[in-house]
């Protein structure tokens, strides 16, 4: 993985915002646009660092994992010497990437051995996730009809697989319409459903304060 890595850039963007706010408050301003934040950002090392890695992801997307990495390695290697690739490749939104279930192959995963590999539920247990019981569901499905006709019937229910906490289940019983079950109390707040649902039909909102995982040192 390239060293875009976020923590130091997150800290730096926080500090840049702080600088702009302190200046604005000192000038007696409030609630206006902090344009000095944008220019501070463009003049800082975050900008040049992110610019250096800007082609890595699109290259990997286009040429596959291995060769993409090789190419982006070379690309980065060149950029270290100030040689820039002359183009900036385009990104596509993630939720548009899924293909119909009848256009892809199924994937068989091995059963967990309980020693090195585990199932979802024993995993979520170790995240100490807890939400106050009896509260409005914080994973809002805007159109439940669409979830059935598209998420399940066209895309084979990807939420049952991308959710790392086993929150989503399609319960199918003979002679009944499949039911979408949302075990929201297990949600570890990763935000994947909000990103990947093929119809952008799931909206993650904050549950009651204090709910969610309780990571000791993650």
């Amino acid at each position: 993985m390239p060293r875009i890595k976020g923590t130091h850039t997150a800290m730096k963007s926080g500090m840049l915002a702080a600088d702009a706010i302190v200046d604005a408050l000192a000038a007696g301003r409030a609630n206006d646009e902090l344009t000095s934040y944008q220019s501070g950002y463009e003049n800082s090392w975050i900008y040049s660092e992110l610019r250096m890695v800007r082609n890595i992801l699109p290259l990997v997307e286009k040429y596959g994992n291995f060769w993409g990495t090789m190419l982006s390695g070379i690309n980065m290697w060149l950029e270290n010497f100030g040689v820039r690739m002359p183009f900036t490749m385009k990104h596509h939104a993630d939720h548009n990437a899924l293909r119909r279930k009848d256009h892809v192959h199924k994937i068989d995963y091995p059963k967990p051995d309980g020693v090195i590999s585990f199932d979802r539920l024993s995993s979520v247990f170790l995240s100490n996730t807890n939400h106050a019981e009896d509260q409005p569901v914080h994973l809002q499905v805007k159109d439940s009809e669409l979830q059935l006709s598209s998420e399940l019937n066209i895309f084979a229910g990807p939420s049952t697989r991308y959710c790392p906490a086993g929150v989503y289940e399609w319960i199918e019983e003979e002679g009944k319409e499949p039911q979408y079950q949302i075990n929201s109390q297990n949600c570890v707040h990763c935000k994947t459903c909000d990103i990947k649902d093929p119809n952008q039909n799931i909206n993650w909102v904050v549950p009651e304060g204090g709910g969610g995982p309780n990571y000791p040192n993650m």
Partner: peptide, 10 residues
């Protein structure tokens, strides 16, 4: 990366 295309992927 979440740009994967096969919905059976986990």
């Amino acid at each position: 990366w979440l740009n994967y295309s096969n919905p059976f992927l986990s």
